[in-house]
Simulated scan of single mutants.
Amino acid sequence: MPALERILVATDFSPLGNAAVRRAALLAARDGAKLLLVHALPRFATLQSAFGEHTQVDLQMRSAAEAIAGELLAEVDAMGVGQVSFEVGEGRTHRVVADAAESFLPDLVVIGAHGKGLLQQFFLGGSAARILSQSRCPVLVVREEARADYTQLIAAVDLGPRSAIVIDTARTVGGAAPLAAVHAYTAPFEAAMRYKHFPEQDILRYVSDEADAAKESMDALVAPYGGAVDGRVVYGDPNPALPEAVRELGAGLIAVGKHGGTRVEEAIMGSVPRFLAYYAPCDVLVC
């Protein structure tokens, strides 16, 4: 598995923002990766309009940010990260992170999963499109305090062309932890067949055929990994089925691919990645 080389983590210094820093530090220490911490401050013009032309709030905020960052950097250094740096930018968080990503070229961007801070800005509208398309790298949404390496991974796959990428990215970020590739399927015309009163045995046969086809595709997907990936096919809508798989397996990380034809469409993401980013009971890797 390829190692991570450059990790960018954004924090607003909230508890989950700093949990993202610790997760990023664990990954950087494991792989010997460079780590960049990024924090966004309001633009000086915004502070002037709020506090007056001669305000020194911007200097006070920058000084406070650098002091808090210093404590984080000391903690990160103690975790064994060899190369770590810190940047403060001005403006909206998504723009500051995008600018940092354009110059740092990370393999992975890490954010905390909380409402006020980065999650809303990453996963709503144009912010997500710009960040995820311009950085061209996976985004790890941290929901749990990082105390150790992941012990169980899930790759949520749709059995399409990007499924192997989702598995490979999950292995890169998750390391040596066991990995289950999970596909949640529904029979597309089952509801219509029931509405039109098809015989029950015909409906069951159709659903069974869909399950057999999904299992065959899953076997072909995981075969190249030589038993290192456990393929699972579950019946049901992905939104409830995938979080249930997380709980059943005790997974600390679920990886899911973006969907769409263009880069912008992929950045906006499909309904399943968006749902997991908000509601999965574990960290989420969008790749």
Rank of each mutant, 00 (worst) to 15 (best):
M1K: 06
E5D: 09
V9P: 00
F13G: 07
P15D: 13
A19G: 07
A19Q: 11
R22G: 07
A25E: 06
A28F: 05
A28M: 03
R30Q: 11
A33N: 01
K34M: 10
K34S: 09
L36N: 06
A40T: 06
P42A: 10
Q48L: 09
E53W: 10
H54T: 09
H54Y: 11
Q56K: 12
V57P: 01
V57W: 09
D58N: 13
D58M: 12
L59E: 15
Q60I: 14
A67S: 13
I68V: 15
I68L: 15
A69I: 04
L73Y: 06
V81F: 08
G82W: 05
G82C: 07
V88A: 02
G89V: 04
V97R: 01
L105N: 13
V110Q: 08
H114Q: 12
G115I: 02
G115V: 07
Q120I: 09
L124E: 09
G125C: 09
L132S: 10
Q134I: 12
Q134D: 15
C137M: 08
E144C: 10
Y150M: 12
L153M: 11
I154N: 02
A155D: 05
A155G: 09
G160S: 11
R162Y: 10
I165T: 12
R171K: 14
T172Q: 15
T172L: 11
V173L: 07
A177P: 03
A177R: 05
P178E: 01
A180C: 10
A181L: 00
A187R: 04
P188C: 01
E200C: 08
D202L: 14
S217I: 10
S217C: 12
M218E: 03
A220L: 13
L221K: 00
L221Q: 00
G227S: 10
A228V: 00
V229R: 00
D230F: 05
G231R: 00
V234F: 05
D237K: 14
D237T: 14
D237Y: 15
L242F: 05
P243M: 05
P243N: 04
E244T: 08
V246Y: 05
R247W: 04
E248A: 14
A251S: 14
L253V: 01
V256D: 00
V256Y: 00
G261V: 13
G261P: 04
T262F: 06
R263A: 15
R263C: 08
V264I: 15
E266G: 11
A267T: 00
M269E: 03
V272E: 06
Y278N: 11
Y279T: 11
C282I: 06
L285A: 01
L285P: 02
